[in-house]
Design a protein around this nucleic acid. Structure first.
Lengths: 219, 219
DNA sequence: ATATAGATTTAGACTAACCTAAAAAATAAT
DNA sequence: ATTATTTTTTAGGTTAGTCTAAATCTATAT
């Protein structure tokens, strides 16, 4: 049985591994805001318990056992996020921290009931895919808004959930999942992107546009 | 800030105190299934932190600060129980353990939203009163089924949530909150109580009847 | 090739939980 | 009143998690 802390480590290792193959001690430490020494300690513990393969001075990789836990936690996190939005009226910028705690106290039974109550959703309120009950995760590769061409159109299909401020700002300017938009201009000198959505012209900084993923449409 | 463990201790002390003034080390240890030594340790810690008044060789009493925490946790527990029943289709015998974990990871905001979604309930699915947001608890004193007189009638208004088996059994024989019943007989030699409910004659052992609380009605 | 910077690991300590076994105090029984 | 029993406390240990500071290893740059 995993402790809450161990679950958090495993989850972070999973997300680091997705773009860097090995998760280094320091990257884990930084992500979890603990000292390198603490992260190193935990790597030994997780390795003993078979959740990670630990290669000293290199980093760790999740084992099959570790990956199952990671996906379970991610699934519960995203199901909770969806649930908080659909059943309790939360908005997408307020749910991350709540889900961060709830994910660790969710039984199989509760997970299944939430899933059913939501009619088996495939994505969370930020458009992130929800792993299935048997640990499959289907990632759709969307286009970064920055990479969309002038004149093209698309639908907002995923938004980075890294920063609540970004989510709150997008909410305020009326951009959400499924919002249809058209790239009316791209300012070359600063990278800004001007879009048209909800019949409004909205300028977006490159940093903001980097948080938005688009499903292209022809129209 | 309280740890989950400390919250559990505080909650148990609260419930012990309600019928015994002082909570002894051993009663706490037994309730939480830990050794006397562990409970004793925790009493010192909770006392240092101002949650209890610790009188060596006597026991502990919650301070005002401790009582506030206890009622907060009880409130969250009972709100969750209600929520699990109303929104996720759980039955009253399946909710205790889920709520036992959820109660510790519930923010003020989440608590308030659940409360609102349930339209501010005053009792949980077992008929136990839900403390208000500012820590008031209104206990209604019902009559124990065992103490009801032959021929009298009443409504099941509260059921002990101590044992899931009892709750499950009652559910199976069709007895629930708000079920109206009439005491048709009381068997003196073994203390059994024969009731009529839902047009059926149902015999109840004294031990079972002890779990049922009645609001008398004249009819 | 060696010095230096950067990352990683070890050493040693702390806290909150828990435990067992022994000691001390309070209560009950003769 | 003295013994026996029960309850409470202390003493000493364990584990999971955290930390700082020091040591070690790796890689880069001159």
């Amino acid at each position: 049985m995993e402790t809450i802390t161990a679950e958090d480590y495993i989850k972070r290792i999973y997300s680091i591994e997705r773009h860097s193959n090995f998760a280094s001690t320091s990257s884990i430490a930084k992500a979890l805001e603990v000292s390198d020494a603490s992260a190193n300690d935990m790597m030994k513990r997780l390795s003993e318990q078979g959740y990670v393969k630990y290669i000293p001075r290199k980093g760790v990789q999740l084992t099959k056992k570790g990956k199952i836990i990671a996906l379970k936690i991610v699934r519960r996190h995203r199901l909770w996020e969806m649930f908080l939005v659909k059943f309790l009226g939360y908005s997408w910028d307020e749910i991350h921290n709540e889900a961060e705690r709830l994910e660790h106290v969710t039984s199989e039974s509760l997970e299944a009931r939430i899933d059913k109550a939501l009619n088996f959703p495939t994505v969370d309120p930020h458009g992130d895919p929800i792993p299935t009950a048997n640990g499959e995760l289907i990632e759709t590769e969307y286009q970064l808004l920055n990479d969309c061409e002038k004149g093209s159109a698309g639908i907002i299909s995923r938004v980075s959930d890294k920063s609540p401020e970004v989510l709150q700002y997008l909410k305020n300017i009326g951009l959400g999942l499924q919002t249809k938009l058209k790239i009316v201009d791209k300012i070359s000198f600063d990278g800004s992107i001007i879009v048209k959505a909800n019949k409004q012209i909205i300028p977006l900084s490159p940093k903001l546009a980097q948080c938005i993923f688009i499903q292209p449409v022809t129209a």
